[in-house]
Design a binder for these strands. Sequence first.
DNA 1: CAGCCTACCTAACGCTTGTTAGGTGAGCAA
DNA 2: TTGCTCACCTAACAAGCGTTAGGTAGGCTG
Lengths: 212, 212
Amino acid sequence: MVAETSEYLATEQVEPSGRRRVLDAAAAQFVAHGYAGTTLRQIASAAGIKAGSVYHHFDSKEDLFIAVLHEGIAAMVQAFGAAKESTADADTVDDQLLTHVRAHLSAIFENGPYTTAHVTSFFSAPTEVRQLVVPIRDDYEQQWNRLFEQLFPTVPAKTLRLHRVILFGTMNSSAEWFDPDGDISVAHLASAITGQFLNGLTGPTDSNGTTS
Amino acid sequence: MVAETSEYLATEQVEPSGRRRVLDAAAAQFVAHGYAGTTLRQIASAAGIKAGSVYHHFDSKEDLFIAVLHEGIAAMVQAFGAAKESTADADTVDDQLLTHVRAHLSAIFENGPYTTAHVTSFFSAPTEVRQLVVPIRDDYEQQWNRLFEQLFPTVPAKTLRLHRVILFGTMNSSAEWFDPDGDISVAHLASAITGQFLNGLTGPTDSNGTTS
DNA sequence: CAGCCTACCTAACGCTTGTTAGGTGAGCAA
DNA sequence: TTGCTCACCTAACAAGCGTTAGGTAGGCTG
């Protein structure tokens, strides 16, 4: 009785596995509705299966959520590492920071919904769930702290910490309003944020030009 | 409905009215758990009543939520107006912007949980609910756009719009991490954000300088 | 071939949710 | 006193929630 609808299993050969389809659907739903606002039946429906079948891949809704958040931060960490490798200490501070900001924003906007889910629904999650992701999150933030100390050796550590948090807020909150398919590109956004962060809106560099 | 917002002119009642207690409790719960993550029984319990009794004051959970968001934005609008009145066109751009940033942050951190609720749980709300608050929200953002056009007449409007959105993200996301009772004051945070926004981290002014 | 594993399904479970209907008692007005 | 309003209560409703038990069909392995 199930063999009739051939359309959904005879589509493409390069189709993601069941587990991945669930993961993808969950990330997208968490972005759209947050943790509490997303139901397993929504996720399952978006993945093309039934709610109970989700438990074949994940132990619980919480488990699934954590898996999404982990993938989200993994993409950020990887982007950060690639950015660090592509820059040299001889590069200007502007260039080095720009590269890392662009990497962070790329992870959010050009790497599927995982990082976006992390950034938008981390704070909306129950405290108990949030605590399980905090260690890895802290690790990533520490990488940024070290980068800052390296780029701005003369600025006091406490001040640096504050401005790093501010930069994170600026970058992450762009997930709420920025449309990567709009008339502003991710690269342009990265350039605008970096330029303003370093030199200010009324600073020396042109705010809508790319760095040299 | 939400017709009377006489919250500030109310005399020094030792105990707030029932409706206000519900409103206060709801705002605090929405901050802590978001819209979907907050139950009417939680709100009622925090207000010292039973769940069913909430319906004596509000038509629905959605109605209550909207009332909270409205109060939240009303505090912002009022703070913005007071900031505008307290500044003169002769003041420096730095001073004028600082005053408005401080007003915005004060509304978030020093005006009860209403503005905080607006800022943190606006995006987590269902689309249909969110749409009902968008007009007033847009109105407030327009006030900021006009302020920006006035402060930076030489910057293109499109660039200005982008940086205003960025500033909003910076300010509003501080609600997620900033502790007004910590070792950094709201005034200091406002000064740090304003200074960096205008002159950059490596800009001319000292980043931990105080007003004027 | 049988046997097992994978990836789903159906059908239900106990519980919580927002919401409602109808009551209770205090306070005030006449 | 009676009557009314206000602010709350109890008790329940249907719907939806996360979750579980048990079944089934197809593919792989020995």
